[in-house]
Write a protein that binds this DNA or RNA. Structure first.
Lengths: 107, 107
DNA sequence: TACTTAATTGTACGTAGTTGCACTAAAGAT
DNA sequence: ATCTTTAGTGCAACTACGTACAATTAAGTA
């Protein structure tokens, strides 16, 4: 089983289930141009707990939206980056971001 | 107070808070071209309970993404449609839908 | 008089998502 | 031997999200 989508009633439902979640959008957006280590992500995703970060990264990895590369070093080093499928979501998150910015400024 | 966004760390976060929720995307998509009555929406959003539909519609209305028009008749008649702000989200939901369709077929 | 219809509302309950905090591993430096 | 660093894990608590089902309103019809 590739991921944890229960039952999608339509493609919109499916997509929302896959990138819903409190931090998924932000993480994907932050990873848009490059490789980030766990600690860098933790600093970038302001307010996230290590527990949630780990959990969310695992889900994104299971969903094949991000790639996790482990370096066998001590202290440990792990780098995260977008997969091709994940990269396909960037234009759409970008659109959403533009809309969000506009809305925030007009409140 | 216009809506219930607590604190957005960035525009991506803000946008996701505003159209997150289990049914919001689907409802907006269904309303993309026209006016629908409560009962019609209930049939269109397969699996939703009347309680959740009412609640979600209220949130979308408070967020100014949909417009609610009440006809003073008996039995009651209420029509929902997208506001201009809501319409701006359609291209992006459309993109998401395309991505979702592609993903669903490749599983 | 009772029944039907449309769009809800209210209460109670159950599950899923999120948080807080303490804790671990393993090598190298002090 | 203890300290430091990085990337986590484990558990309990809490809150938000979602479900189930009964009840409401008020005019029109049988």
């Amino acid at each position: 089983m590739k991921n944890k989508i229960k039952k999608a009633h339509c493609a919109v439902d499916y997509a929302f289930q896959r990138i819903g979640g409190k931090y998924k959008g932000r993480i994907l957006w932050i990873l848009r141009d490059g490789f980030l280590r766990y600690g860098e992500l933790k600093r970038a995703v302001v307010g996230i707990t290590p527990k949630m970060l780990t959990q969310t990264l695992k889900e994104l990895e299971a969903d094949e939206l991000i790639f996790r590369k482990v370096y066998l070093e001590v202290p440990p080093k792990v780098e995260y980056s977008l997969t091709d499928t994940g990269k396909e979501l960037i234009p759409f998150i970008s659109l959403m971001r533009t809309w969000g910015e506009k809305q925030m400024s007009s409140d």
